[in-house]
Amino acid sequence: MELGFHLVGLRALVTFSSKKLLLNRRWVIVALMAALVAVVMLYVASEGSGTIDEGSTLINTLILSFLLPIMSLIYGASMIRNEIDDRSITQVVTSPMDRRVAYIGYYLSLCVVLSVMLVIIESVGWASFFLTTSVDGEAVELLLSYALLLVIGSFVYSSLFLLLGVVFRQPIYLGLLYVFVWEALVGSLPGAIGQYTISYYIKVIGSHLIPYGNITQFSGDAGVAALVLAALAAVFLIIGAWAFREKEIP
């Protein structure tokens, strides 16, 4: 009875929030990013060697390392925070749906929308590069492998940035600090410190799936990396759901 009640509520919230995210004006930014990726990849395809290694490196650098955390931050940190600020969250927090379940609803819709948008951007970039060079089975496999990494990354980054949005009033600044200082700068340092980033574990999994480009530089156990990412997402999700339940929403 209770489970059925919450499943109906979860479905309503996921549907509503997904539509809200997709219809948001920020899709213009997403379209611009997709266009930028397409232009860069098209340019490199025409001016560079046009090999699959080059295509893989571009997707890794432009989309997996840059767009994935940035878009997760933009959408994740503002999702619940904006609803609290403009009070559109009223209907959710004054419904009998357990707030922790509602939080999972927000999380799922964020993951789905982010995954879809990132895979579309990746597909546009991939098409710009490989349709002007050569499309074969390996190129298609590359597309699918990166799509899987983007989906995995969306689930982990979303759990982190959604949590920041619930806990902090200005989550974007903290998120930018995390993305550019921790993930990008610290993550690129030599030695073990680079392993303390989400990006590292995604790329470890990627190095087992993709034998092309600079992603192959990452080595490690893919199973362990998957476990670490799953554990991180679960911990962030649990803390976020708890914080959302405890939060006063004036």
């Binding site: 509520g9 309503a12 549907t15 509503f16 009070r87 559109s88 959710v92 009998p96 749906m97």
Partner: peptide, 22 residues
């Protein structure tokens, strides 16, 4: 205060609210 989602129709809004109430 105002909190209604302006992009939704009245029917869609009630569908959303009803869903939240199971």
């Amino acid at each position: 205060y105002e909190f209604l989602p302006m992009d939704l129709t009245g029917t869609d809004f009630l569908r959303f609210v009803g869903g939240l109430h199971g």
